[in-house]
Design a protein around this nucleic acid. Structure first.
Length: 465
DNA sequence: TTGGGG
């Protein structure tokens, strides 16, 4: 069907026989990326589109514009795009479409089936015929029953991730925002526990360069934290420098939704998992009734609702025999660190299974003050959070079995921290999962929540067998 | 021109 411009609107499959020609298409956006800078003069964003004629892998579309603002602001994957006067090219044996800022135009429409034909974004020069409108209606009707073919994609659970991976994730967007100046994070969750990491830092550096409690330079406010799930890992995703920030507000459209992200990079930073949104990362169309999403939702709902029934599906790992908690902690509830952090009582007592990832001080002869009183700071983590917890006086006596000699104290500390050789100078350790009794307290009764801290009590490092 | 897979 020729439009007023004389450019023919074609089904995507016909593009495969129109190399070097210009065409128009009406298509569903299967995947889209955020705008990124290019090695040329423009910004670029990449879409993958499908229609009734070509919906297995879809077709890539590269759009270029002088400013990121002129590129499509896709509200959600699955929306409809009308691309006019785009060029047909091939690369590596695959056909794709190229949008030129000089002569192409586009309009974006909601993907959901409705009579509304008001585009939510139009480029300059965009025109639509009645026949184009009918085509949009037909495409929306087709989309109602369209399930993208994910055959080529494996969507990894957080419990299956590995460092350095490029992965596809199917997860819930918990929150998005600029947590500090130029520090943008997406918080995602799928209900499973990400694997624990090797800690690659020197204990003796803990004073000057401590292991951080979170990737953000500022901790999130407590009221936001308290809205997060308390079982399963919350993965922080940050952005590669070449991603343009001007479209970030579009993430509000997927807040609290389960979505599919493809080609996310996974890194470990200070022993903490970090997702990196790279120029290759894309949002993928995720229908509400998507089978994978329904399965994941069911699993995570069940994990939360049956949390206190039993240690359901490994919410808490099996602890080693490195520590034992003493009888006065036996009645304390078994919780994750997120549950301890978000508990509505300022002062409370918990039993947790954690890893001791750092200690300050770490030299055995320094664990007590000149007056002989234990005082040290431990950094504890589980799959849900990392916190500081203090060991004071009598709690230190319990933990280390009184006042053992330096050699024996050093052995106990190394066991707790998973140091196998080199002591404080080793730059690699594998802390074991250990049971601890955790008590929360406050320093100032006028600001109980603001001065809330944790201490390790009623916990003992087991004697050598 | 740029990018396309990752």
């Amino acid at each position: 069907m020729a439009s007023r411009s004389g450019i023919k609107r074609v089904p995507i499959k016909d593009v495969l026989s129109l190399l070097s020609q210009r065409v128009s298409v009406v298509a569903v956006i299967l995947e889209y990326s955020f705008p990124k800078t290019t090695r040329g003069t423009d910004y670029c964003c990449v879409l993958r589109i499908v229609d009734q004629s070509h919906h297995e892998t879809g077709m890539a579309v590269n759009l270029f514009a002088l400013t990121a603002d002129k590129l499509p602001h896709v509200a959600e994957a699955g929306d409809v795009i009308h691309l006019c006067n785009v060029s047909v090219r091939t690369f590596d044996g695959e056909y794709n479409l190229v949008y030129s800022k000089a002569f192409s135009s586009f309009a974006l429409y909601q993907g959901k089936d409705s009579d509304d034909l008001v585009p939510y974004q139009v480029s300059s020069k965009y025109q639509r015929t009645n026949a184009d409108g009918i085509c949009i209606h037909e495409l929306r009707k087709w989309r109602v029953n369209f399930q993208p073919n994910d055959g080529r994609h494996e969507f990894r659970l957080f419990k299956e991730i590995k460092e350095g991976d490029h992965v596809n994730l199917a997860c819930k967007i918990l929150h998005f925002g600029e947590v500090a100046k130029d520090e943008w994070f997406i918080y995602v969750w799928d209900g499973t526990n990400a694997p624990p990491n090797t800690i690659r830092s020197k204990l003796e550096d803990e004073m000057n360069c401590p292991l951080p409690l979170q990737l953000e330079s500022l901790a999130l406010p407590r009221d936001l934290y308290c809205t997060f799930p308390t079982v399963g890992s919350i993965l922080r995703i940050t952005f590669d420098g070449s991603i343009d920030k001007s479209h970030f507000h579009l993430l509000d459209n997927v807040k609290l939704k389960w979505i599919k992200l493809v080609n996310m990079r996974l890194e470990v930073h200070a022993g903490l998992w970090r997702g990196l949104f790279t120029p290759f990362t894309k949002f993928r169309y995720t229908p509400a009734e998507d089978n994978l999403i329904l399965t994941r939702k069911r699993f995570s709902d069940e994990r939360i609702s049956r949390r206190f029934e039993i240690n359901y599906l490994g919410c808490v790992p099996v602890p080693s025999t490195v520590t034992v908690v003493t009888v006065d902690c036996h009645c304390a509830p078994h919780v994750t660190l997120m549950e301890a952090l978000t508990n509505n009582q300022v002062t409370a007592k918990f039993k947790c299974v954690v890893r001791v990832v750092a200690a300050l001080p770490c030299q055995p002869e320094m664990l007590r003050s000149p007056a002989g009183i234990y005082r040290m700071q431990l950094t504890l983590e589980d799959a849900t959070a990392r916190i500081h917890a203090y060991v004071f006086a009598k709690d230190g006596e319990t933990l280390f079995g009184g006042y053992p000699d330096t050699d024996s104290l050093s052995k106990k500390l190394n066991k707790l921290l998973g140091v196998t050789e080199g002591g404080a100078t080793s730059d690699k350790r594998h802390p074991p999962w250990v049971s601890v009794c955790l008590e929360s307290y406050y320093l100032n009764k006028d600001d109980t929540w603001g001065t809330r801290h944790f201490r390790v009590s009623s916990t003992k490092v087991a004697e050598e067998a």
